[in-house]
Computed example of a mutant assay.
Amino acid sequence: MKKLLTLSLSFVLASTLFIGTANFAHAAKAPAQPAVSAVAKTVKQSKSYSMILSALAQNDVIGQFDPTEITANEVGALINKVTQENPQVLYYKSANVWSNGKIEFAYSLPADVMKKNRVALDAKVKKVVASINKPGLSELDKVKAVHDYLVLNTEYDYANLQKNTIPADSYTAHGALLGGVAVCDGYTKAAQLLLNKLGIENHYVIGQIGDGLHSWNQVKLNDNYYFMDVTWNDPVPNRPGIIAYDYFLVTSNQLRKDHSWIEKNWAVATDKRYSYLQTGKTAAK
């Protein structure tokens, strides 16, 4: 008889209010399994990783893992790794895992809506990337353009946060880029997706603000790593045309003043060359 393992692996759609030094509010999904390092690569899981990614990217209800590589008990962490490293994955909710390698996926939206949103997101990403990726731009220019685009065109979903009614879309790149409304996971994944398309190494980071969960990005420029929290650079309530840079390309020391994360899971950020950008002031655009 095949063993069934039910996994509540999705990020729980619960939110926490954070107030930053610039009076920014933030929310994040809580992983039911421990977060997986964005920079660590598990070679022996590569086949299962590819199979899970292929299924989740198309919102398939049935997927597979290779039971000769990993056990059913290890699939949860691998699914979390896939969702954290691939922001094009939308609306994953939970999974039932069978010891013979079968996975039954559940999602938060109907299949037809998810398909429509996947197509729309792909088209939007291509359009935004084309608007950014101009000849002569440095990698710094591209990262700043992604950051600024999201701050200027996305509003933090504060209204739903207050009512505890945050929809699934606000936790996705689709919500940030198409709906223009997101919480921290939406901002983080939208930045991750755009930077991926621009060929800039970056990673999803999950951590905490106080006792609440939060997410942001790590970016590699000039062989150095930096942290970037787009959410915390977007004023709440929304102030059209205003961008902050307090959390743009900061070091580990700068970020740990009010953020915490399992630091061994991500590269240490020590380079201060962009500290001149963190003025503590906002800029009108």
Rank of each mutant, 00 (worst) to 15 (best):
D211A: 11
V268G: 13
D234G: 12
G210S: 06
D234P: 12
D211P: 10
A173C: 04
T165D: 15
R256Y: 13
C184G: 03
I200T: 12
R239K: 12
P237A: 08
A269D: 05
G186T: 14
N265V: 09
A191V: 03
G210L: 01
Q278Y: 03
K257F: 13
P237N: 15
Y274P: 00
S252R: 06
A244N: 15
R239D: 06
T188S: 10
S260Q: 12
A168P: 02
N233K: 08
Q278P: 05
H259Y: 14
L221N: 07
D234E: 06
P237T: 08
Y204H: 12
N224V: 15
I209W: 01
V250P: 04
S252A: 08
G207P: 11
L194Y: 00
H203W: 09
N217L: 13
I243S: 12
N164M: 15
I166N: 00
L177Y: 14
G199R: 10
T251M: 00
H203L: 07
A190V: 08
Y204G: 08
T188L: 05
T172F: 03
Y156F: 07
L177A: 09
A159C: 10
H214Q: 04
N238K: 15
P167H: 02
G180R: 11
V268C: 12
G179Y: 04
R239P: 02
L161K: 02
K197N: 11
V205L: 04
Y276P: 14
Y171H: 05
Y247F: 07
R239L: 12
D271C: 10
N160I: 00
L194W: 01
K272M: 13
Y225K: 03
A176W: 03
L249E: 00
D246M: 05
K257C: 09
K272Y: 15
L255R: 11
N238S: 15
K189G: 01
V183A: 01
D229C: 10
Y245D: 01
G199N: 07
N217P: 09
N253F: 06
Y245F: 07
I166W: 01
Q208I: 13
H174T: 08
N224W: 13
Q162E: 06
N164I: 12
V236E: 03
W216T: 05
R273L: 10
I209E: 04
Y247Q: 14
P237F: 06
Y225L: 05
G241A: 10
V250R: 02
V230S: 11
I209F: 05
N253I: 06
N222L: 12
V181E: 04
Q254P: 04
H214A: 05
Y204F: 11
L249Q: 00
A244H: 14
P240R: 10
R239S: 13
I243H: 06
G241W: 08
L255W: 07
K163I: 03
Y245C: 02
E263M: 09
K197M: 09
G175Y: 01
E155A: 06
D229I: 07
P235A: 08
A176T: 14
P237I: 13
S275R: 08
N217W: 04
